[in-house]
């Protein structure tokens, strides 16, 4: 299968201007640093990492909601980073996003019907009123809401229902890619499963590709076909779900996976249970060499001086570690 969306060496920087007593020079926060991946039609790529590792910035950078500092996002033969604003707007029909906080991502002054219909108004202005209404109703029903609810306002709905509304708004223009930015992390556990299943059903029916961003490994495992692990803005490991969860190669991935509680009490815990100690370093001043070295149990002197490249441990399985052969 060929790639639908190709991201090459993407970097997203936030600059904190100089000023005040304590900051003489402007600082640059490298939220995303040199990240590359491909997204294929119909697949889910799970992006995992701790809070502040730049995974949300990655999603927003891909969609040009924040302007990337460097790199390319190839979509239908064009580089989104180089397109003018008007051309990007046209692409938004196919590239959608679902946000983390379901209620605050819906305009409180618009009805559900208006919220869901809006992408149609923007991208299909010629659509007749009745037709638009029919599509909105069908979409609401598809995400598990009753069409009669179209005249209600977001504050009348629960978190899970609001997330269904967000999904309806993202899906109605029949996009090809949806970035799901922690779509379930603010919901109750029981609702999380419903929303995850809804996304999976929609993917099965429409062949949509998902960039599924989450800090929750078990949800990523449930949702994804492939996984990308980020730490301080950089890719640590990437690979297919089975290889990744079965035999993670990067010390950071191993630590993450061993920290997930084992659902089956009869199963023995992971042989080598790694615990992450130490604080997450400040992303404003990341460690030299390998960014993970301050917390890595396997760190050696070369890790301080040299940034490990993403080595191919197996076809489609990349690991950014000097000692990946030994892990």
């Amino acid at each position: 299968m060929t790639a639908l969306l190709t991201v090459e060496h993407l970097s997203v920087h936030y600059s904190l201007p100089a000023g005040g007593l304590f900051r003489r020079r402007p600082l640059t926060l490298k939220a995303v640093d040199d990240v590359s991946f491909e997204l294929r039609a119909g697949e889910t790529l799970g992006v995992v990492g701790e809070t502040g590792c730049g995974k949300s910035s990655l999603g927003k950078g891909v969609l040009q909601l924040v302007k990337p500092a460097a790199g390319r996002v190839l979509w239908e033969g064009q580089d989104l980073c180089a397109l003018p604003a008007e051309a990007i707007k046209r692409c938004r029909k196919d590239l959608q996003i679902i946000f983390q906080d379901p209620l605050s991502s819906l305009n409180p002054r618009m009805t559900i019907g208006e919220i869901v219909a809006e992408p149609l108004e923007v991208h299909y202005p010629a659509l007749a009123r009745d037709d638009r209404r029919r599509r909105v109703d069908a979409m609401l029903e598809r995400v598990g809401l009753r069409p009669e609810m179209r005249n209600r306002y977001p504050n009348e709905f629960s978190g899970g229902q609001c997330q269904r509304i967000s999904i309806a708004r993202a899906m109605i223009s029949e996009p090809k890619v949806i970035v799901c930015d922690e779509p379930v992390s603010s919901l109750d556990v029981s609702i999380q499963a419903q929303i995850c299943n809804l996304l999976r059903d929609l993917q099965r029916d429409t062949g949509i590709a998902l960039l599924f961003i989450s800090h929750d490994l078990s949800i990523v495992r449930y949702m994804s076909h492939r996984v990308l692990v980020m730490y301080l803005g950089r890719v640590m490991e990437t690979g297919g779900r089975e290889e990744f969860f079965g035999a993670p190669r990067h010390p950071y991935s191993q630590a993450l996976i061993s920290a997930v509680p084992v659902p089956d009490p009869d199963r023995p815990p992971a042989e080598r249970s790694l615990v992450l100690d130490g604080e997450l370093p400040s992303p404003l001043d990341p460690p030299s060499g390998c960014v993970f070295r301050t917390r890595c149990p396997l760190a050696v002197p070369v890790c301080i001086t040299q940034m490990p490249p993403l080595s191919e441990a197996a076809p489609g399985h990349g690991v950014a570690c000097h000692r990946w052969q030994e892990t």
Binding site: R142, G144, Y153, N155, F157, S158, Q194
Partner: peptide, 27 residues
């Protein structure tokens, strides 16, 4: 159509169904 049973949402659904006027923030 695969509208999954909306376990926790259903209470809010019923609640929303009872009042028939929509309640915007302005109202």
């Amino acid at each position: 159509m695969s509208a999954r049973p909306d376990l926790l949402g259903s209470e809010a659904l019923a609640q929303a169904a009872r009042g028939d006027v929509s309640r915007s923030l302005w109202r």
